[in-house]
């Protein structure tokens, strides 16, 4: 399987220094574990900060050189068509760059590829030419989908941790530089404002309630409720589950 991993010029969330994007490193890990020929793709003015991805298990990195003013989309689309990849992996969003998370969707539309967002695990599908994707859903839920390749899959932070950095591999690895496509970005009408931290919304306890009550209110709002039974009898457990399902409306009470 030929796999492309899209890499963006990220920055460390705290220090602001150029750094690989964690979720893209996780994408490299998924590609590495799936096996096959893995290539990293980057379109941007400078790939030097991305050299470290070669230390996280990426065997090959191709840099399509464009200027800051260019849109990376056409360069990446052209590279993906040329490379005839079976699977394209991208992070869910970048970090420290533009971070919109829209690029994978724009690419999928342009290349007419199916897109599966938020993969936490990948495996060979049941038939050849298919891929089984485990999607990470809110609250720890998972959903397994099977897609026909070629496909574009974005990776969720719930995927397995990135492979640890190996300095020598990064040192030995080379970046193949190729010219990208000149594609000046359309001027946008986006207004930029400094970020304003908003207060976190938590469930309110009655005014003047004690700290313990406020804590209870704040934490209970996040939990699903229910009761904790330790080592119950199977019948009792089944009855309890049914009652709960009826209470929350999953089962109709008869």
């Amino acid at each position: 399987m030929r796999i492309a991993v899209l890499l963006s010029a990220g920055r460390h969330a705290v220090s602001g220094r150029p750094a690989p994007v964690p979720v893209e490193l996780q994408a490299i890990r998924l590609a590495h574990d799936l096996g096959g020929e893995v290539t990293g793709l980057h379109a941007g003015p400078d790939a030097a900060p991305l050299k470290d991805t070669l230390g996280h298990g990426l065997p090959r990195l191709v840099h399509h050189r464009i200027t800051v003013a260019d849109d990376p989309l056409p360069s990446l689309a052209a590279a993906l068509i040329e490379g005839a990849f079976d699977l394209v992996l991208a992070g869910r969003t970048g970090q420290g760059g533009e971070d919109t998370g829209l690029l994978p969707y724009a690419l999928a539309r342009q290349l007419s590829l199916p897109l599966v967002p938020d993969a936490a695990a990948l495996a060979e599908g049941p038939q050849s030419g298919t891929l089984s994707v485990e999607q990470a859903l809110p609250r720890g839920a998972r959903r397994r989908l099977v897609v026909h390749v070629p496909a574009l899959v974005t990776v969720h932070p719930a995927a397995p941790a990135a492979l640890p950095f190996a300095f020598a591999a990064a040192r030995r690895g080379a970046v193949e530089a190729r010219p990208g496509l000149v594609a000046p970005r359309a001027p946008t009408q986006i207004e930029e404002r400094p970020y304003r931290a908003r207060p976190k919304l938590i469930a309110k306890a009655a005014a003047g309630a004690s700290a313990a009550e406020r804590l209870k209110a704040a934490t209970e709002a996040a939990s699903g409720g229910g009761r904790l039974l330790v080592d119950p009898l199977p019948e009792e457990a089944a009855r309890e589950i049914l009652t709960h399902l009826r209470d929350i409306g999953v089962l109709r009470s008869r």
């Binding site: 705290v14 941790a161 640890p164 950095f165 190996a166 300095f167 020598a168």
Partner: peptide, 26 residues
């Protein structure tokens, strides 16, 4: 560590933070 990147799983993140934020806790 340097050649294989074969660290214990929980030892890798502090090293990564040190690489990009100069501080093991990031």
């Amino acid at each position: 560590t340097l050649e294989l990147g074969a660290l214990p799983a929980k030892a890798a993140p502090p090293l990564m933070e040190m690489r990009y934020a100069d501080e093991p806790g990031g």
